[in-house]
Design a protein around this nucleic acid. Structure first.
Lengths: 154, 154
DNA sequence: CCTGCAGTCTACAGTAACTAGAGGGGCAAG
DNA sequence: CTTGCCCCTCTAGTTACTGTAGACTGCAGG
């Protein structure tokens, strides 16, 4: 099993075919060989490479960070500290988001507790939404915390 | 202070001018009056309305949900239960994300602990990224959990 | 009255990280 | 040889905005 088509690679890595092509287009994956008819043919190590990318993405590293990590892999001899820094930056982000999500959870719970049947006129969920400038508004930046909620993938 | 320009409204709500226009364009905000020269002029209650939208967004409600909530406000007499449902849906989302973020936090911490100086060759962060199909990959859907990390606003 | 500058207007393009679809060609089995 | 799945490129759509260009308005100082 020397070479595989994009579909096999997709199956082996659980990364969608279109996503693989996308990664290639943005330079995260090298351009593979092509068959005579133009189909992409991947060597076995592409599986590892793609899994690396996918796992880093799953961990929330933005593509730019993944790119950095790849370049660190490619040109070794640099300090592990750089990798560490990227990971720490990511951890900080994750923690920031955790904190905000916890606040949101608390507020949503409070809202729901307050809303126990009854008509809109007295619905405190809507009232709660109207008020509360104090709660999360110092940094009116919280929107992106949850932007993109609708889950699209499988 | 009967009518205010878009800049005043922006100042009063901490929502950017461009975002206000955007909300109008997608129908979240009604079209306001215009001055003779075409500038938007908002009445005082726009402040509350916009704050409502902003706060709902800060709580992570997608725009579609905010739209629902607004329509519930506009045509009262409906059951508070509907509002409650929207809030619960949102709470479920928040909890799902919390769980995933906690897993990510744990893994990042583990990675960083393992990486204590040393050269790339032996850097276990990179190694950790390459392996670990087991950890978060059942649902290869984790990517969006953290998509959009780079904070843009301020 | 003129000048300058901040504020406003529209419209379009760009962002992140993909996903989906159109419209076509390729390849192995029956 | 046809069926059916796989592959190709290219374009456009998604979410919730943000940024830019190029023009106009409104107000204060001199």
């Amino acid at each position: 099993m020397a070479l595989m088509t994009i579909g096999k690679l997709s199956g082996a890595t659980a990364v969608k075919v279109t996503t693989i092509r996308y990664y290639e287009s943005i330079g995260l994956l090298d351009e593979p060989q092509r068959s005579a008819s133009g189909q992409r043919l991947y060597a076995g190590d592409s599986v590892e490479r793609l899994r690396f990318i996918r796992h880093a993405r799953d961990l929330g590293f933005p593509v730019s960070a993944v790119r950095e990590l790849i370049s660190l892999q490619v040109e070794p001899g640099r300090e592990c500290v750089l990798v560490d820094q990227i990971a720490r930056r990511q951890l900080d982000e994750v923690r920031r988001r955790l904190t905000q999500l916890e606040a949101l959870e608390a507020e949503l719970k409070r809202m729901i507790r307050a809303c126990e049947g009854g008509k809109i006129g007295s619905c405190s969920v809507l009232a709660a939404l109207g008020q509360h400038e104090n709660c999360l508004h110092e940094q009116h930046d919280g929107a992106e915390v949850l932007a993109g909620l609708p889950s699209r993938g499988a």
